[in-house]
Design a binder for these strands. Sequence first.
DNA 1: TTGAAAGCGATACCAT
DNA 2: ATGGTATCGCTTTCAA
Lengths: 383, 383
Amino acid sequence: MKVTINDIAKAANVAKSTVSKVLNDAPSISEATKAKVRAVMREMNYEPSSLATRLAKQKGYNVGLVIDLSRKSDFLNASFYDIIGGVESVIGPLDYELTIGNIEHVGRERFVSRFVLGRKVDGLIMDNSILTLELARELNELNFPYISIGEIPGVAPLCWVDINNRRGAAMLASHLFARGYRNPAFIGGERGDPMFEARVAGFRDALAAAESARDWANEPGFKPQERAAAAGALREQEIKAAARQKEKAAEAGPFMASGTVLPGYANEANGRRLMRELLALPSVPDAIICMSNLVAFGALEELREQGVSIPDEMGVATFDNRPLAPFTTPPLTCLDMDTFALGAAAGEMLMAQINGLETAPSGRHRWVEPELVVRRSTEKKAT
Amino acid sequence: MKVTINDIAKAANVAKSTVSKVLNDAPSISEATKAKVRAVMREMNYEPSSLATRLAKQKGYNVGLVIDLSRKSDFLNASFYDIIGGVESVIGPLDYELTIGNIEHVGRERFVSRFVLGRKVDGLIMDNSILTLELARELNELNFPYISIGEIPGVAPLCWVDINNRRGAAMLASHLFARGYRNPAFIGGERGDPMFEARVAGFRDALAAAESARDWANEPGFKPQERAAAAGALREQEIKAAARQKEKAAEAGPFMASGTVLPGYANEANGRRLMRELLALPSVPDAIICMSNLVAFGALEELREQGVSIPDEMGVATFDNRPLAPFTTPPLTCLDMDTFALGAAAGEMLMAQINGLETAPSGRHRWVEPELVVRRSTEKKAT
DNA sequence: TTGAAAGCGATACCAT
DNA sequence: ATGGTATCGCTTTCAA
């Protein structure tokens, strides 16, 4: 039925080891025999059994992307196709395969034994919602290649990739300041969720930078670069924004960002509720950054209902371009995440680990930088 | 390093064939030895090599889901996570794995040899945009198990699953009639695309049913069921809708659905353009069915701009709930597709084929029925 | 440059 | 009930 290496050997009148060498294009085989054997292979429509090859080579040529289908993680969910695409784009050309593992059916305990000891895969990629601390440590102990999507505090060494959420939040807030908003708030997301914490941290980074800008405004001959550098981890972009803010601040008078942060599970209902709370505050913010598209949508609804005009009375910016940001009224300024790049980065780091390109399995990580997409929701008229 | 069946055999003082039998829980082994061997396995942290098992058993325990990452198919794209979830939900418990194959890196020619002859997978699932006629025939010839998502005309036997697009379109149109709209049009989608053709066919089904209803309205003592049955493949649901339409039609006077269909690549720009064309027609439709969320969004924009009120002057319905339908202004009546069920159906049929539960590999198919979600965009005020 | 034989880690048949 | 051994299809020394 199926044609094997033996059939080829017989038909070509060579040893099967010779056929194997032809398969692997060994330099020790003469071009003549190579040609002959290849002709036979083509004629007989031969394809080596990947199973046998992998067993013999003791390599699976297979990486696992583990997900938890029972958990409906909105973010990964929506960009799953892109992440897969990214991973595939780097492992595919290297002749590796991608198998999807659902931890729901395997169970966290049997998981390691099945995938790792069972040699189903040569490496794993999973996000930090399923890669627990214990799991990571177990994998470390086994010296098994894996990449985490998102950091896992307390695990070292650890290879991970992530969207730079902190920087992203800072970009969003800086943009708001640059546009003339002076008192932004942050709504949605849950305390303890690393993604939320990172974004809030970035939000505060930008607030701090803006504070500095305000102080400079009161000093003649200030040197923004030096200040900014001293203020902490600010980059060129923020520095420029800060410089612009100085001018704004000078015209706009007292600067008083309270930096309100209102957490809450990131859905539409909470977007409405949190917006309502914000509007009832003694010092109402003049702009918001939303944890997700759904939160933003809820906020927009509440604003519309209360007759608050966007973007003039309230600027609205949000994380993620998909699925709604381009389609709301008005369209939302947002941070677009290149999830394909995220998958590709994970794939690259994993392949590096598998092929031992890393001198030591040292803890490395790679950020994927988000991109600011400016739309009408933050187009404040010049005052 | 890694512990194998031999290590267990030695440690337990039995033959490795015995260990193998224990692994497979063979009835011929005494409970005593089973217990003993299992204890050793546990102690040594043994897990059989899936590669070796699969080679020996000549079964891959693996199914492939093939996609074309270079092609950005909006629909599959958005529901990819759910489809995977559906497939996994049936193959996972059967201890099968899911590997994602990207045809982009493999190439359509080398594809069969790699996946099929290379015995990487025991079966394939792919949609009919990548499963060409020749490919299907080749697989048929090799007697290789596969499931197509979407029918492939001209291939028999063929196992396929699909969303019932024709019925869906009919449901949408019937809903419009039942709500009192009398002249719906269909916009977006490309001629030749099976999905488009199916939807247009369903649209026409409903038009035909409505026509009958109009005729009945002129006859005393009509029998809707008989008429409908005679008219073709109408089901209960449509029959009832037709009955209701009869009453509507009686009040509403002359019925004149022209059934305009305006094709065009399904994006936002075309949604606008096609809506504009529709509004310039001599007999302007009073409702539209859109091929996709993007088309619908474009149409909504144009309507807003031209000051046409929704839903009173124009009813708007669309295919797909995601990503926008719940979030537009007004929210869109739509057809929600259960893509998880689609994946599950594909998985079930494939497993049936692989395990030879099908007496003959006869051409079977399964429809996944869409669900109508009614929202404000079709809430015509009673006239 | 080619070939023979010993793995890789399981299964499966045939003895015992 | 258990053990020995061939086998799955390919790779990889080691000789020739």
